[in-house]
Computed example of a mutant assay.
Amino acid sequence: MTIRALSIIVEDASEAAREVSEQFGWPRGQSDFHEFADVHADGVDLWFSTSSAVPSGQVDGVTLHVVVDDVDQRTHEIQARGGELILGPVTQDFGMRSAIFRGPGRLLIDVCAEVSA
Rank of each mutant, 00 (worst) to 15 (best):
S31G: 07
D60C: 07
L6I: 08
A37S: 15
P27S: 11
S51P: 02
Q73F: 07
T63K: 03
D38T: 15
Q58H: 13
Q30C: 01
V44E: 01
G95E: 09
V68A: 06
R102Y: 11
T63Y: 03
A13V: 02
G88D: 07
S56T: 15
E11C: 04
F101V: 04
F33E: 15
V67L: 08
E22H: 08
R74P: 00
A37T: 09
A53M: 13
R81K: 14
D70P: 02
R81Q: 15
V62T: 14
V20T: 07
R28V: 07
V59D: 11
F94A: 06
S116D: 15
I109G: 03
A13K: 03
V62H: 10
H76V: 11
V54Y: 12
L46T: 07
R97N: 11
G103K: 04
V71N: 04
E15F: 07
M1Q: 11
T50S: 12
D42Y: 09
F36S: 00
P27N: 11
V90Y: 08
T75N: 07
S7P: 01
L6C: 10
V20Q: 03
A41R: 01
V67Y: 02
D32H: 14
E114N: 13
T91G: 05
D110T: 04
G103Y: 05
E19K: 10
A53D: 06
V90P: 00
D72I: 00
D38H: 06
D110Y: 01
V71A: 01
D42E: 13
Q73S: 14
D69C: 04
R18N: 13
I3S: 05
P55V: 05
S51C: 11
G57A: 12
I3K: 03
E15Q: 14
L87A: 02
I86K: 05
V71T: 00
F24R: 01
G103M: 02
V67G: 04
F36Q: 03
V59F: 05
A16L: 08
H65C: 02
D70M: 03
A53V: 10
R4I: 03
I100N: 03
A80M: 08
D93R: 09
T2C: 03
S21K: 01
Q79I: 00
V71L: 03
E11W: 00
G82D: 10
I9D: 07
H65G: 02
R102F: 12
W26Q: 05
D12F: 06
V111G: 02
G57S: 11
V90E: 14
E84P: 00
G61R: 10
Q79G: 10
V59K: 09
D110N: 11
P55D: 13
R81D: 15
D12P: 06
H65P: 02
G105F: 11
L6N: 03
D60P: 00
V67S: 09
I8L: 14
E19Y: 04
V62R: 07
E84Y: 00
T2R: 08
A37I: 08
G95Y: 08
V44C: 06
V115L: 07
V71H: 01
